[in-house]
Design a binder for these strands. Structure first.
Length: 872
DNA sequence: GTTGCATAATCGC
DNA sequence: GTCCGACCTATTCGG
DNA sequence: CCGAATAGGTCGGACGCGATTATGCAAC
């Protein structure tokens, strides 16, 4: 067993980096050797790396079975005897029981699995410049890996047998993936009856080459078009294909493998089907609780938002945990993070060297989820250290991809293109198929598609009204899909998903979109969304746009709410906007004032910032859900059921018209009244509050959306931040400055990270990297903004658009001009274009910015104090 | 042991 | 919050 | 009439400012 230093370990990784013409070779940071404990496992043996190279060179020439055997031969010298293990036997038995005649050659299976780990330098992985499979040497930590290898073996045996071909169900490497794409039509194939009508749309792809090639022994007379693709009941067996047994805990590795398969696919339909297959196995083999855990882990959540559980874990904590678990230096980890742009991948590439007294047992889905909740529960003194310890222990227990997804989850983003909509679809599909399997009534073809589509619709609409998996999933399992809406529906006290609005560029676009339908225009207030639930008289809760419980933030609103309820209102759910308000001057205050309100432990007396509620929709009244009613009706009922009080609780300003001039005037009126613009809603057509049908059903019109209007600034690029995730290798954000001719300084005003296309981003990287300077120029005024990763000489001017100006505690731009201390920054800054015609000295000046800020305030005559303490 | 400050994490837009 | 890009679906266009 | 091109919608993931809150740390 040879020991290698981290240095030699990383060399091959550097070689694997996607070619970046811009990056100079010396950019690759040299990793310092960590103080590896004597006796700790070697990270990765040198010969594995070498073999990897050989493999990648050879593999493109080899195909199919031949390649697998070759790979197996190449790997063979590292084979070790796998100790007997019951799980292993179980899987063997399962395979034998299921299809004895097709029991695959075990050597071939292993070869297959070896291929799982084969690096592929020819095809860049979607989100991981460093192929994780290179890093995961099979036998790395002999002291720890016993049971884990069993998981791997089990995963390996999740093989699908179609005729004579053996295909891993879960593609985990690009190689396998590519091969799968060659054969995936077998996945896509669904046996269906001969189309009844000739114009049946599903007959479209009948003549794909794959269909022709498919073996006649596999009876797929009919290939359904990709758009009708659903997991094939025949190809995936929820029980037999799963890598765990019924009534045994789901190994976290099974979920991690699913994530990996999802990550390496780009097609939404395939992603859906991969997750669906996993969920089908969970449905068939495991408990409802494990299904809930799986869903939460997939969505990377701890529970429903209104419970307010937070991980309280960020990059800092994660890095410390990595240091502790791996023995690498903080600097080495940060350097790698800078280069790789994903802390999950960094963790995966860092082997844990921490020694454990006992072998950590295999991670299960439930265990991982409950550990996350434990981490969230640590509070108070030295809680961070406890979190670090806990994460570190988890890290030690992780194997290969488990590390990646666990750490990504802890960092807040799983980044596998899998979010609520996709999960709901997969869950609906899985339950639908599960129900059909249980009842023995297997629909096919069109009928199947229809059933699946209704299932998705049902689940999505139920979930939008009751976004709580802990209620929906048990009901789903007990009552079935069809009956679900009866048991899970809008319930006061539980926030529902809010209707959102799509930005529009002007009236012409609005008319085009609503297409003759009658519309209502309302002011768009600049405050905070508040979903007010009156559960029973005197029992009120308020939720935010993201279903967070904001009840404690608005005791004043709750206190006076009874006065606004109509006599016959016993319970209701109101949709509204809370806006800060100057009670003396009787006018609205900017959003920035609203945010200064305390969030927790607010008592009525100490409230400094008063608010007014602008109600605009009613979703529930006295036991009846109104979400299926038209907006016209909802709005009318609302306006009849509440008693507005000026400055405390009013209805949103509304105008029902389709006249361009009227709308124009109304829009301008909204701006004069310190609103952001207009909300446009259809009154009758598509006018229900059904988020599942379309969550962006309303339209919004703001000044800054309009081309050629809104505040535009020309700013100098003075620095940039390394991009993360899909921006890895480019700059992800830029630091911008305005010019102050008086002091001849460039004063930093904001960052910007949106508005450019991928191509522009790359182009700017290539241009700007030539202007990097080691330290900022002395005439850059920086305030306390976060230091960029690179500084630039002041050469380029960009046009940037913003919605608003704000007084900034960290940016120095125009400091002293609008506020004695604070500078000015931009709200919602976005890149518009490069101003090649402008020199840095032509950039927008501090005085101009101060003027813009003042005119924004003076629209309403708001006078800002210069103390920075009070706003009014 | 308190207190004040800096930093990180969340969440509003 | 803004914005972009990939993917899907439905519709239109052109041979 | 059918396949190709196009348009529009959905979904996910980059990134913005600034507020509170919680925690860690150093000074008193």
């Amino acid at each position: 067993m040879s020991f290698v230093s981290i240095k030699s370990f990383f060399k091959p990784l550097a070689a694997l980096d996607p070619p970046q013409p811009s990056a100079s070779p010396d950019k690759v940071p040299v990793m310092e050797s960590p103080s590896l404990e004597l006796g700790a496992s070697p990270i990765l043996s040198g010969n594995v790396c070498k073999r990897s190279k050989e493999l990648s060179a050879d593999l493109p020439l080899l195909r199919g079975r031949k390649r697998k055997v070759r790979a197996r031969l190449l790997e063979s010298d590292s084979e070790e005897d796998i100790p007997d293990n019951t799980t292993d036997n179980v899987v063997d038995r399962k395979l034998a029981r299921v299809r004895p005649e097709h029991k695959p050659d075990s050597k071939l299976l292993e070869a297959k699995f070896d291929n799982f780990r084969s690096p592929d330098t020819n095809k860049s992985m979607v989100a991981s410049p460093i192929s994780a499979s290179v890093i995961s040497s099979p036998k790395i930590t002999p002291g720890l890996n016993g049971t884990f290898d069993k998981f791997e073996e089990n995963s390996l045996k999740r093989l699908k047998i179609s005729g004579t071909t053996v295909i891993p169900v879960t593609p985990t490497s690009p190689l396998i993936e590519r091969e799968l794409m060659d054969t995936c039509e077998q996945d896509i194939a669904i046996e269906s009856p001969v189309p009844k009508t000739k114009c049946n749309p599903i007959s479209k792809n009948t003549h794909t080459p794959e269909a022709k090639n498919s073996s006649p022994s596999i009876s797929h007379p009919h290939i359904v078009s990709k758009s009708n693709y659903y997991p094939d009941q025949r190809d995936y067996h929820p029980v037999d294909s799963a890598c765990w047994e019924t009534k045994t805990p789901i190994p976290y590795l099974a979920l991690a493998r699913t994530f990996q398969a999802v990550e390496s696919n780009s097609s939404r339909l395939r992603i859906q089907s991969i997750l669906c297959n996993y969920l089908r196995s969970v449905l068939a083999l495991s408990s409802p609780q494990e299904l809930i855990c799986s869903v939460y882990l997939t969505l990377n959540r701890l529970g429903p938002a209104w419970r307010g559980e937070e991980l309280g874990v960020g990059e800092g904590v994660l890095i410390r945990a990595l240091v502790q678990a791996t023995g690498r230096s903080q600097k080495a980890i940060k350097d790698e993070l800078y280069k790789v742009g994903d802390i999950g991948l960094v963790a995966e590439s860092s082997r844990c060297t921490q020694r454990m007294m006992f072998k950590p047992s295999a991670l299960t889905v439930e265990a991982v989820f409950s550990k996350l909740q434990e981490i969230a529960r640590f509070t108070g003194c030295s809680s961070q250290q406890k979190k670090v310890e806990k994460i570190s222990a988890l890290l030690v227990a992780c194997r290969d991809t488990e590390t990646r997804y666990l750490i990504r989850g802890l960092s807040g983003k799983l980044r596998i293109r899998l979010q609520e909509q996709t999960v709901l679809t997969s869950l609906a599909h899985a339950v639908c198929l599960h129900e059909m399997e249980r009842s023995g009534k297997c629909a096919k073809g069109e009928e199947l598609k229809e059933k699946m589509d209704t299932a998705v619709q049902t689940l999505k609409s139920v979930y939008c009204e009751l976004p709580d998996y802990e209620r929906v999933i048990p009901a789903l399992l007990e009552q079935g899909l069809e009956a679900l809406p009866k048991f899970c529906c809008l319930t006061p006290g539980i926030p529902l998903k809010p209707m959102l609005a799509q930005p529009t560029k002007g009236l012409s676009e609005i008319f085009k979109r609503v297409d003759q339908a009658a519309i209502s225009c309302e002011y768009k207030y600049d405050g905070e969304r508040a979903q007010i639930h009156v559960i029973a008289p005197g029992k009120v809760r308020i939720f935010s746009r993201n279903q967070e419980d904001m009840t404690d933030k608005f005791p004043d609103v709750i206190d006076r709410l009874p006065r606004h309820l109509g006599n016959n209102v016993a319970s209701c759910v109101l949709d509204s906007e809370v806006v800060a308000r100057d009670t003396e001057k009787n006018q609205k205050l900017p959003f920035q004032v609203l945010t200064t309100r305390k969030r927790k432990g607010v008592s009525l007396e100490e409230i400094k910032v008063q608010v007014c509620v602008y109600a605009f929709d009613l979703l529930y009244l006295n036991g009846e859900s109104l979400v299926h009613e038209s907006f016209r009706r909802r709005s009318k009922i609302m306006r009849n059921s509440f008693k507005p009080v000026d400055g405390e609780f009013v209805f949103s300003e509304q105008k029902i018209t389709s006249c361009t001039e009227d709308i124009q005037a109304f829009f301008e009126g909204s701006l004069k009244d310190q609103c952001e613009g207009l909300m446009i809603k259809t009154l009758d057509h598509n006018a229900t509050y059904e988020i599942s049908k379309r969550s962006f059903n309303w339209l919004k019109l703001k000044k800054d959306y309009l081309d050629g209007t809104g505040d535009t600034l020309d700013l100098v690029v003075v620095g940039a931040y390394q991009g993360t995730g899909k921006r890895t290798g480019n700059y992800g954000g830029f630091l911008l400055a305005c010019y102050d001719p008086d002091s001849e300084e460039y004063q930093v005003i904001c960052k910007t990270g949106t508005g450019f296309s991928d191509a522009q981003l790359e182009a700017q990287y290539n241009i700007l990297k030539q202007h990097v300077i080691p330290i900022p120029k002395p005439y850059y005024s920086l305030g306390t903004c976060p230091a960029p990763d690179v500084w630039f000489d002041s050469n380029y001017v960009w046009e940037v658009k913003a919605a608003d100006f704000s007084l900034s505690p960290i940016y120095p731009a125009a400091a002293g001009l609008a506020d004695r201390e604070r500078g000015i920054s931009l709200r919602f800054p976005r890149f518009i274009r490069v101003r090649e015609d402008k020199t840095p000295e032509d950039a927008t000046t501090s005085e101009q910015i101060a003027h813009m800020y003042r005119s924004q305030q003076s629209v309403s005559g708001i006078i800002t104090s210069t103390t920075g303490e009070d706003y009014y």
